[in-house]
């Protein structure tokens, strides 16, 4: 059966055809991309956008997974007004987001901290100019198990001793900090990719680490997780656990410790966070690519909506602390100017 009428095709011929096939795939991709790009900007159906101004276009957002729900919620609210503006959101993390943003791949970068100097330099080198917009506040809650009655309030020094690099290898609270009770210490927190991790270091650990002459980082022998529920569940798994998560995800199952940032113990709640009394709170930002905003009316309209309805409604809806009215006015003035 295997006998053939002709000789095997030459190797060169086969390779050529395969190559042609690959080119076909490539050209399908390119054509469809081009079509997508054209389709996006030329497709202006007017009947569906009765309530809006009828702008259309694509907006792509990447960055912090903490801010992601706000931007998604804003997009959901915006959708009913401008149905022809298409907003896609992904959330790999603040650092990843800035890398893409400064490569010009995204329109908006969600961030749970301000842009770092190194990142700003990358942006400048690539010629990307941007506008920073503060959208809300996220308190960082310090948690322990609800059964833990031995500790109510911790100072920044306590936290540095417990979670900072000097705590490496300690297995009880007392071993890390002699002023604390002698109980097993199990620490749960976000991993290094998370904005909550960066913020915690920046707010709580950085100055003390400098004084102590050690790196501003955490000990490495804690249980890191990118998922807040895993951190919460970890805290519940041990009676004398310690952990930190975004205030929105603290829930009610664990005990929120009061924190002393130098001005006495303050409990974490929406009021103390918005008023900046609670010491471990961080601002949430979006960074908008200026050049893209100028070209893309859809992006402009989305950010316009973000700084009005978004700040008023969406931030609270997804569990963050909204800005005060004065701060909102400042943000709006900053964007419109």
């Amino acid at each position: 059966m295997g006998e053939s009428f002709v000789q095997l095709p030459e190797e060169g011929f086969v390779t050529r055809v395969i190559r042609r096939k690959l080119q076909l795939v490539a050209s399908i991709a390119i054509i469809s991309l081009a079509a997508a790009a054209c389709g996006g900007s030329s497709d202006t159906s007017t009947d569906a956008s009765a309530s809006g101004s009828g702008v259309s276009g694509d907006v792509f957002i990447s960055g912090s997974s903490t801010v992601e729900p706000i931007s998604v919620r804003v997009a959901e609210l915006f959708e009913s007004i401008e149905p022809d503006v298409f907003v896609d959101v992904e959330g790999p993390g603040t650092g990843d987001g800035f890398q893409k943003f400064c490569a010009g791949e995204t329109d908006i970068s969600n961030a749970s901290r301000q842009i770092k100097d190194a990142e700003a330099e990358d942006c400048a080198a690539a010629g990307i100019e941007y506008t920073e917009i503060k959208v809300g506040i996220d308190g960082i809650a310090v948690l322990t198990n609800a059964n833990n009655s031995a500790v109510d309030c911790v100072t920044f020094e306590n936290l540095f001793n417990l979670i900072g690099p000097n705590g490496e290898g300690t297995t009880t609270w007392a071993a890390a900090d002699s002023s604390l009770p002698d109980a097993p210490l199990d620490i749960f927190g976000p991993g290094a990719e998370s904005g909550t991790y960066d913020s915690f270091i920046e707010i709580v650990l950085e100055d003390l680490a400098e004084e102590a002459g050690v790196d501003a980082t955490t000990r490495t022998d804690y249980n890191p997780s990118a998922e807040d529920n895993i951190i919460i569940q970890g805290i519940q798994s041990s009676d004398t656990s310690l952990g930190w998560v975004g205030f929105a995800f603290a829930g009610t199952e664990s005990k929120l410790l009061e924190v002393d940032g130098g001005d006495g113990c303050v409990a974490a709640n929406a009021d103390t966070i918005a008023s900046n009394e609670y010491p471990i709170a961080r601002d949430l930002f979006i960074y908008v690519n200026n050049a893209n905003a100028e070209e893309n009316a859809a992006l402009r309209a989305y950010v316009d909506f973000y700084v009005t309805e978004g700040l008023d409604t969406a931030v609270a809806e997804v569990g963050y602390v909204p800005l005060t009215d004065a701060a909102k006015d400042e943000v709006r003035a900053g964007w419109n100017g």
Binding site: E90, G95, K100
Partner: peptide, 9 residues
């Protein structure tokens, strides 16, 4: 790789 098409770091 979760959540993104560009793994950076």
């Amino acid at each position: 790789a979760t959540g993104t098409d560009n793994v950076v770091g």
